Simulated assay, not measured.
Amino acid sequence: MRTELKPTRLDRVFSRLDREPERPAHIDVPVMTRHRVVLFGSTLAFYVAIVWAVVITSWLVRLDWQIMFFRPYQQWQQIHAFLDYYVVLGQRGPTAVMVAAWLGWRSWRQHTLRPMLALGVSLLLLNITVGAAKIGMGRLGPHYATEIGSNEMWLGGDIFPSGHTANAVVTWGILAYLASTPRARRWLSALSAVISLGVGLTTVYLGTHWLSDVLLGWAAGLLIMLALPWFEPLIARAEAWLFSLRDSWRDRRTAPVPATAPTPTAVGTAPLRAPGEEPATVRETGVAARAAHPPIVPLHLAPGPHLSRSERAPVTPTGSRRPPHADRVAHNATSARPLAGG
């Protein structure tokens, strides 16, 4: 007999994912080609050059100070309100939620977890690399600068590289990375580049970042996007493991349940016992415990030769508290009273 459980919402999701996937027959997974390796090396060299230019307080630092003294937010005040909202496209929380919603819908339609796993890997790399660089270099922002003309490095800040710019490159660039066709990938790549550079320049306009912060943040995000093909085998293994875990969990939930209870003579089952009777293991444990610790017997109940009731000597009381009555008759004697009715 097989008992059918009432399908839950999660079961309906799994059944929907088990249908024929609505996706192209072949999805092009990016690989680490020679062209991509060259771009990765060039971007890494640009990253190192920006850091070195700031460390030695080169012309780039002087340009940072000139832009800061120019105060763009005071020169073009009419666009200040718009850019306050536009810079949200580079914040981690709102952008991650929007992109995750889109990629989750794609995972639903295409019966694959790769879009969500790729987003998770890219954001993890972003937090590790950019976060470590921010803490390691500790540069202060324009609003907290202490000395005019200095690079403001290793003073406890956390703005170098620009997190808004790097996050915009990764969050919107992942849409281009996961595009199904080359044409969509080109258009989405151009769109993500425009959004990320616009977010970076907006932070310079608002005075929260130096220009060199934006350049380094753009390079940091691009390095993550170029390195993602190296993590594709890990993403594939994680997807296969998650699907196998889902299948095993679903098989356990829908396992058949036996209709009748096992008989007492079956192998591995316990024998039946009367109501209120202790199990055999409990009785054996109690017997062993009583054998190991015999009970204490009072002296008047000590073992010895016992006689039957007929062999015991009659015991009479040494004295009675009642006075003797001569006219009492024994219980087994006949009554001397006359019969009624004469």
Rank of each mutant, 00 (worst) to 15 (best):
D11N: 07
G131L: 04
N127E: 15
M225V: 00
W249K: 03
L113A: 01
L226W: 04
R328Q: 14
R237H: 08
A219I: 02
M1W: 10
L113W: 15
T165I: 02
G138T: 01
S42N: 09
L113R: 02
V169E: 05
K134H: 02
R246V: 00
P303D: 12
E20M: 11
A288L: 06
G304A: 06
F70G: 03
V282A: 15
G342V: 11
L5D: 07
H306M: 11
G217D: 06
R12Y: 09
P294Q: 13
Y86R: 04
L123H: 10
K6R: 11
R312N: 12
I224R: 01
P142R: 02
P305Q: 11
I135C: 05
A25G: 13
V29P: 09
I56C: 06
I135T: 11
V194T: 14
T263F: 10
E239Q: 02
L83D: 00
A280D: 15
G163L: 00
A118H: 08
P229Q: 04
L119K: 03
T208N: 12
T3F: 09
V31D: 14
I135N: 11
T281K: 09
R9V: 07
P338H: 08
W241N: 02
I224G: 03
Q77H: 15
N167H: 07
V170H: 04
A193L: 12
L226N: 01
Y86L: 05
M68C: 05
H209T: 00
W241I: 02
A292K: 08
T334A: 14
L222V: 13
A227R: 03
L126H: 08
R109Q: 01
L17S: 12
G141Q: 06
D28Y: 09
R252Q: 10
K6T: 15
V267K: 10
P294S: 07
F160P: 06
W76P: 09
A193D: 07
R237S: 01
R253K: 15
A291T: 13
M98L: 15
G221M: 05
T285W: 13
W59K: 10
A240N: 07
L223S: 00
R16V: 06
M98I: 15
E278H: 15
A179I: 06
H143V: 05
V48C: 04
E239N: 02
T181Y: 01
R12V: 06
I67Y: 07
I128M: 13
E311Y: 12
L197A: 12
V87E: 08
L178S: 02
T3W: 07
S150I: 04
Q77P: 13
V13H: 03
S42Q: 11
V31Y: 14
R312M: 14
